[in-house]
Write a protein that binds this DNA or RNA. Structure first.
Lengths: 143, 143
DNA sequence: CCAATATTCTTGACTCATTCCAGAAAGCGG
DNA sequence: CCGCTTTCTGGAATGAGTCAAGAATATTGG
């Protein structure tokens, strides 16, 4: 759990200006992993009630570009963000409630990166999405 | 390359009514793999100029539900459809031009399905998206 | 082969996430 | 402390996709 000062350093390290909205967004993403944009806006507004929607969108994009947060976008859902970056981990998505959990790379370091036939593509990343049901929904057995 | 009669049988086999729009959509998806919805609408209209956008959306959804086509939705792009179903293959997406190619499963039958730690989820599918640059864009070296 | 019925298609309005724009308000370097 | 540049605010706009009501059209029993 990083503190405000850490966030400022992270921003400076990425050559980004340190602004209240940016620090707040960083904190919100860290406190709510896999949250969608609206949730992040809500979280940010608990400490900075005046931030605009666009500020959050802009900040999230800027942070994504420099690699301080990662954007994930499972089909059928709005974009979500997480602060765990640097390790290429993956996600399990519950088909029923949408809950997302982290999954470390399946077979060692960067296994799935080796496609059997890349058709001449130069591949630099493999993104895996697992689909299933979370413990709660498995037990409930509902749709 | 299946013919109209085959499409009719596929639809009947899935307990779907055989309608002109459905046959045309099935043909369009097969003729244009990885096409987005607008392209499919365009392709369908070359033989059935009057089909409505919603008809195509409805048909694509119906076909997806019964498993005659597969919907893929790489982050940052609109939904795309393909007719290759049944084998759980994956996709390479070019970061620069968006071109999509098929990739067979990396390590044998259904390798990536085995997450290292599923957090109690019951996983039934693993979807892999490879990111890179297609041969043309690699050569061009542009952004 | 034809009518009855349930599904499917057309038209048009609408939602939702996200982006674009112009002007006001900060950060940062000197 | 000052000016320049980037960032934030507020509002309008875009684009994919969905919803709803009525018209059209497949299938099924006669």
């Amino acid at each position: 759990m990083a503190a405000t000062l850490d966030f400022q350093q992270m921003l400076r390290g990425a050559a980004l200006r340190v602004t209240r909205p940016r620090v707040a967004v960083l904190g919100a993403v860290q406190a709510h992993p896999h949250a969608d944009t609206d949730s992040i806006i809500g979280a940010v507004r608990t400490e900075l009630p005046e931030v605009s929607r666009q500020a959050v969108y802009d900040v999230l994009r800027a942070l994504t570009v420099v690699g301080l947060v990662r954007r994930i976008e499972p089909p059928g859902t709005a974009a979500r963000y997480e602060s765990r970056v640097g390790d290429n981990h993956h996600h399990v998505v519950c088909r029923s409630c949408g809950l997302i959990a982290d999954v470390d790379c399946a077979v060692g370091a960067a296994p799935c990166l080796a496609a059997s036939d890349g058709h001449g593509y130069s591949i630099d990343e493999a993104e895996v999405t697992y689909w299933g049901r979370c413990p709660d929904c498995s037990t409930a057995g509902s749709s």
